[in-house]
Design a protein around this nucleic acid. Structure first.
Lengths: 188, 188
DNA sequence: CGTTCAGTTGACTAAGGTCAATTCCCGTGG
DNA sequence: CCACGGGAATTGACCTTAGTCAACTGAACG
């Protein structure tokens, strides 16, 4: 799993990849427990072996906003906190039981100081995260709720199948009431 | 100007920074002309010496969405196209006459192959762009139009002073009609 | 069978869009 | 100095999208 993930960057030799696991520690997280909580400084990043995560933050008025979901074979971190060394607003909660492979930021920095490919790796991750977020932003800016929902159905069927509708509504930036309305419309 | 910009990354020696200008070409852009147009592959990035830019993209129904603005001493590129080598949806238009210092992507790659600090530099740019976009995303997701506008007034007074309201409305994700309504409300 | 939790629905309200008519501002030419 | 022409901004009347609150349905499970 994680070996395949690293191969996909074409940065590391077969030998290096075989030795990668040594840098990571396995961790289990129970359903509803957190990998990161609001206010913390996120100093590690994880590879998800199994399980589902939701990232959400709570705004002043108490509204719960879903930032994103993370699936098996995805990376998991409060990425902005990880790169900026500042406290996060995100809560990364397991919505099913999960197993992770965790690595500390300082370990990555140590590896980067010895092998510039780790520095390239960090750059590629940052760029990927940017591209993904930009898509999400455009989606939110240009489409109304019904369009965003149908886009989700067509492009991320995983989401519909595996994630409770209350979370999907919040991910789409609408209330559950309105999502129900849209679902009813579309089913005709 | 550009020297100060590079100094702020703490990656390059005074000597290196003094020689930087040689890598860039100066370019002038007339008001309403484009640095990048939709459909192009953005293969260069620019440092803005003077002038103001707006990035916008047009959605299927013909709606014009403002992605962002760029000011003097900012970098200018369709960043997602620049890093992914894919055609962009963005139009980068000068809203005043402008002068740029332009560098090609391949030049940066050439520099990075010789000096790993250029690779670090690219990583830091990617991370900065991510952080900025995340703020923008949170803003759009959690606040209504009036909150977004008052945030803008308080945190980016430049925007209000220098950018036509029609563009600001589109940046905020609303119509000019609604922005007028908000402005009227607030002035009491 | 109750209880619980997720999802749906109805009735009403509020935020924001559409379209078209002004008004405001400013430059230019008489 | 004034008149007027054009682009930017405001406003009014009306409509659509989405939020609020609370009641209801339905499946899951002890």
């Amino acid at each position: 799993m994680i070996q395949q993930f690293f191969q996909s960057f074409y940065l590391f030799s077969k030998n290096e990849i075989d030795n990668l696991l040594a840098f990571f520690k396995e961790r289990t997280i129970a359903k509803n427990d957190f990998f990161v909580k609001e206010g913390e400084n996120c100093k590690e990043i994880a590879f998800i072996q199994s399980g589902l995560f939701r990232s959400y933050y709570v705004s002043e008025e108490g509204k719960d906003n879903t930032y994103c979901f993370r699936f098996p074979n995805d990376l998991l971190a409060s990425y902005s906190s990880f790169i900026s060394n500042k406290p996060t607003v995100e809560n990364l909660q397991a919505i099913t039981e999960a197993t992770l492979l965790v690595i500390k930021k300082e370990k990555i920095q140590e590896l980067a100081s010895k092998n510039p490919n780790w520095s390239e790796f960090s750059r590629m991750i940052a760029e990927q995260e940017y591209l993904e977020l930009e898509k999400r932003f455009f989606q939110l800016q240009q489409n109304d709720a019904a369009q965003r929902y149908t886009f989700l159905i067509e492009n991320q069927p995983d989401y519909i199948q595996k994630i409770p509708l209350q979370y999907l509504a919040s991910y789409l930036g609408i209330t559950q009431r309105h999502l129900s309305r849209i679902r009813k419309e579309i089913s005709f």
